[in-house]
């Protein structure tokens, strides 16, 4: 960390000496502190204002009964909103869906991403073109991706998936209605596999050739080298992909909005979509806010573990360079 070396460099340049000198030095140090802080402040203040203030307001709202359709209905209700939220079976269902969608999407796209990365980690004719093709799903507008899967791939009568499956005796399956969660996961996996592939490929390509050569000399098989040398080396990249992927996928809203509208019923609602419905279709500000706070509490529990891991990963990455 450069933070550790910087103060030493600074104090060394400061003139030492008697009490007056020491007081001067302290003032100088304070001035230097502000000089260093000044460039940071606009970004810090802006981020605090736009992210933390609204969250505080959410906490306040969550203690009130407030429906936008009845403007004069406001009152302090203590924790009543929380009691309502925690006994709301649809909220709990949405929470379970969130976990299921996030976990299955991250695991499946990571496995596919590792497979594709291994295929691309060798020289062959047209490698750049194949890589360019494979990253494309990640670059397509997510809203467009959801439409593509809804109306072209998974459509019951003319959909390509049913067409491809028809020789195997599949009929006109209405994927989005019969398997809504699976449909959402499939679209998300297609979108996120390139992300995982890119991270794993970067990991594979940072692997020193000498280690693999040594393994070869020692007579290790391809499979042994993969399990004992490549996989441990990839661990950091896989962890990073899983963590960052989870952060993004857990907040998925567009795919569900476009593909299933959370339905049928609330079968494929996740937390962002369910809270959206309660806020913008039900106008129940108090309860929506309470749900938001509960989600943050859950996120904090998971995140304190995850953040530590991320931080360790990032710091070791920067030290290692």
């Amino acid at each position: 960390m450069s933070a550790a070396t910087a103060p030493a460099r600074r104090t060394a340049a400061e003139p030492g000496g008697g009490p007056a000198g020491r007081r001067g030095a302290r003032a100088a140090e304070r001035a230097d502190g502000w000089r260093r802080r000044a460039p940071l402040l606009p970004a810090l203040v802006f981020t605090l204002a736009v992210t933390q203030l609204p969250f505080l307001a959410t906490v306040v709202y969550s203690l009130r009964s407030w429906n936008l359709l009845r403007p004069d209905s406001q009152a302090w209700v203590g924790l009543a909103n929380y009691a309502a939220v925690l006994t709301d079976s649809q909220f709990l269902g949405a929470a379970l869906n969130t976990i299921a969608v996030t976990a299955s999407c991250v695991v499946a796209s990571m496995l596919l991403g590792i497979g594709l990365a291994l295929l691309l980690d060798r020289r062959f004719a047209g490698r750049g073109v194949v890589r360019t093709l494979i990253i494309t799903p990640f670059l397509i507008l997510p809203v467009a991706t959801a439409l593509l899967w809804k109306h072209i791939m998974l459509e019951p009568v003319f959909g390509l998936v049913n067409f491809v499956l028809s020789p195997f005796g599949a009929g006109d399956v209405d994927w989005a209605s019969q398997y809504p969660v699976l449909s959402v996961v499939v679209a998300l996996v297609w979108q996120w596999t390139p992300f995982m592939m890119l991270l794993v490929l970067a990991g594979l390509q940072s692997q020193g050739g000498d280690v693999l050569e040594a393994g070869q000399v020692d007579g290790a098989s391809r499979w042994q080298m993969f399990v004992w040398i490549t996989l441990p080396h990839l661990r950091r990249y896989i962890e990073l992909g899983v963590l960052l992927g989870s952060i993004y996928v857990v907040n998925t809203f567009d795919t569900i909005y476009m593909l299933t509208q959370g339905g049928p019923g609330t079968a494929s609602s996740n937390l962002p979509f369910y809270i959206y419905q309660r806020t913008f279709l039900g106008f129940d500000i108090g309860q929506s806010a309470a749900m938001g706070v509960v989600v943050v509490a859950g996120t904090i529990i998971v995140a304190t573990l995850a953040l530590r891991l991320i931080f360790r990963t990032f710091m070791s990455a920067q030290e290692a360079k």
């Binding site: 969250f55 959410t58 959206y276 806020t279 806010a289 938001g292 706070v293 989600v295 996120t299």
Partner: peptide
Amino acid sequence: STKMLPVVAVVVP
């Protein structure tokens, strides 16, 4: 850590 704050927790205010 602000990237971990779910958008739904701030959208109402």
